[in-house]
Design a binder for these strands. Structure first.
Length: 108
DNA sequence: CATTTGACTTTGA
DNA sequence: TTCAAAGCCAAAT
């Protein structure tokens, strides 16, 4: 469903700078908590296409997509760090500090 | 038209 | 506690 993609794009576009969102939460926000994988799939199509901050979208562990997705290893991480996002020693985004509070912002 | 795959998540052993 | 398997929705082949 293309609309599903649009929903994903809209939500991702609303992620505040310096914050990150997880696939599962985005999916849940769309009403499809089980389609976390489909959310990621949608990102694959959208990227630079519409200036979508896909680098702010990570899995629930704070890990990011394969390097080639952003043009190289560390690209996504670099952009996030530039926005003020911190990383854990394990190399994942510090979700506890930078997880987007979509509940308050989007009014799910 | 049916099968497989995919930037994931959650539960079972 | 850690490891492994199933499940979910949508798109691509």
């Amino acid at each position: 469903m293309k609309e599903f993609f649009q929903e994903v794009y809209k939500i991702v576009a609303r992620i505040p700078r310096g914050k990150v969102a997880t696939y599962g939460q985005i999916a849940a926000l769309l009403g499809n908590p089980g389609s976390a994988r489909t959310v990621g799939w949608a990102m694959w199509e959208a990227p630079a296409h519409m200036g979508l901050p896909c680098h702010r979208v990570v899995n629930r562990l704070g890990a990011m997509a394969p390097a080639h997705t952003f043009g190289g290893e560390g690209i996504q991480r670099a952009m996030l760090e530039k926005e003020g996002v911190t990383f854990k020693p394990n190399g994942c985004v510090d979700l506890e500090k930078h997880l987007w509070d979509w509940e308050a912002d989007y009014h799910a």
